[in-house]
Design a binder for these strands. Structure first.
Lengths: 219, 219
DNA sequence: ATACATATTTAGGCTCACCTAATTTTATTT
DNA sequence: AAATAAAATTAGGTGAGCCTAAATATGTAT
C-alpha cells in the first residue's frame, strides 16, 4: 500500500525529474511539497527503504521503476478526472486542478478503467497534458513551444507548459483555446514577441513569456 | 475543518441514531467503525469539545445540529456518487459502496452541486436511499417494508432496508429490481413468506427475511 | 586553500488517531 | 443487596508525518 503522503512525494519527484533531469534535491522537494526540508530527509529515507525511490545521501533522489509506475498511475488518474470535470461537469480548465488533486487518490482500478472508457479513452487532459495508459505508457509527444517556430509556420495549439491559473485565465480572456490554429505572421526581434493569426480570424500580439508557454504541433 | 476520522464518526453516529434512536453507545460506535472502544471514548471527547456531538459520560453520544448537517453533507455526497457510478459508469448496485466511501470525502461544494445537476437532481441513490439537498433536507419518505403489506396490496419496490452485498446480489439474481411492481398474492401464516407477482409476469416466493428488507410504496 | 554561504542531515519533539491493559462504572442476575 | 457480567473510561504507549534548532556536508568566491 502507498499512503497519501507517499503518493504526493512520488508525483512531485516525477514532475521535478521531468523538468530538471535525473536527480531531485531535498530542497526542491521541500519547496514543491510545502514541507520542511528536515521532514523531507526523514521521509525519503523511508521511501527508499520501500524501494519507491533511490536515495543518495546529500545527492538527492530519483524514482525506481516501481515508484515511477505508481507516480504514472496517479498522474493518469489526475488527468482523467480533469477531463471529466471539464467535459462532463462544466468546469473551466483553471478550476479543476485542486479537485483532481483530491480525486487522484481514490483507489479503484475498476473505477479508473470505467472512467477512461466513459470519457472515450482521451489522449490528453484539458491542458493538453498527455494521459498515460493503464501500464504507464504515453503516446509520442510531438509538441514544442510556439517560441521555437519561425515566421510563416502554421501550427495547432495543443497544450501549455505553464499551468498557473493566471496564465490559463489570460489565455481564456484572450480567447485562445486548445485546438486553435495559429499562424506566425511576424516575430519582433527586440523582445521576441509574436504576431499570430488565430483561426484565420483574429490577429494577436503575444509576448515571449506567452509563446514560451504555448505548446504547438505543425499542421 | 473536519478530518476524515471525524467525518466517519459523524456518518456512523447519524446512521446509528437513525436505526436505534437518540443515543449512540461507545461500543456500538466502536463495532461499526472497527475501532477499539477506548479509542472511541478518546475521540468522542474531542468531538464533543468541538461541538460536533453532545456526549454524556457513560451514556453515549448524539449529533448536535452542526454535526448533523455535516453528516448529511457526507451522506449527500456518498449517495450522489453512487448514482453516478451506477448510471454513468456502468457499475452494479452491489459494487459502488466502497468507492463512494472514498469519493464522499472529496471536498468541493462546487463539485457536488455540479454533479447533482449533471445527474439531473436525483431524489434517491441506486438502493433507493433518499438524497438530502444541499441544506440537509429530505423529501418525505413514504416507503414501508413489504412485510407490513397485506394480501392484495399492489406496491412499487423503491428501496432496501438491508445493504449487504449478499442481499443485493440475491435480488439481482432473482431479477427483482428497483421500480418493479409487486402484488401480494398470498402470505403464508406459518413462516411469513410472501407469494408475489412481479411486474405482472413472474410469480415468486419471498421469505420473511426478504420481505422485511424490501421497501415499497403503494400504487 | 580558506572562508563563507547554502543545502542537507541529525536530534529531539509534537499532534493525530489509533492501540493494550487496568480500572471504574453501569446493568443484570441471584 | 450482593455478586457478577458487560460497558465505558483512564493511563500509558505507538507510528505516521510533520516541526524547530543544531550540526554537518557541499559548493562557491576570493
Amino acid at each position: 500500500m502507498t499512503s497519501l503522503a507517499e503518493e504526493n512525494y512520488l508525483k512531485t519527484i516525477y514532475k521535478l525529474q521531468e523538468k530538471n533531469g535525473a536527480m531531485v534535491s531535498t530542497s526542491a522537494l521541500a519547496e514543491n511539497l510545502q514541507i520542511n526540508a528536515a521532514s523531507v530527509t526523514d521521509f525519503i529515507k523511508k521511501m527508499a527503504a520501500k524501494k519507491l525511490i533511490s536515495y543518495q545521501k546529500s545527492k538527492g533522489v530519483s524514482l525506481t521503476e516501481h515508484g515511477r509506475l505508481i507516480a504514472l498511475g496517479i498522474i493518469r488518474k489526475h488527468r482523467l478526472w480533469e477531463v471529466w470535470l471539464v467535459n462532463n461537469l462544466g468546469f473551466k480548465w483553471d478550476q479543476v486542478h485542486e479537485i483532481a488533486e483530491q480525486l487522484e487518490h481514490v483507489i479503484s482500478d475498476e473505477l479508473i478503467e470505467n472512467l477512461d472508457k466513459h470519457l472515450g479513452y482521451p489522449k490528453a487532459d484539458p491542458h493538453g497534458d498527455l494521459i498515460p495508459d493503464a501500464k504507464g505508457r504515453f503516446i509520442k509527444n510531438t509538441s514544442k513551444p510556439l517560441l521555437d517556430c519561425v515566421k510563416g509556420d502554421k501550427v495547432k495549439f495543443t497544450g501549455v507548459a505553464e499551468h498557473s491559473n493566471s496564465f490559463l485565465q489570460y489565455l481564456t480572456k484572450s480567447n485562445i483555446n486548445l485546438g486553435d490554429e495559429l499562424v506566425v505572421e511576424a516575430i519582433e526581434e527586440f523582445d521576441h514577441s509574436f504576431q499570430v493569426k488565430i483561426n484565420k480570424k483574429e490577429r494577436k500580439l503575444l509576448s515571449k513569456e506567452v509563446v514560451k508557454n504555448l505548446l504547438v504541433v505543425g499542421i
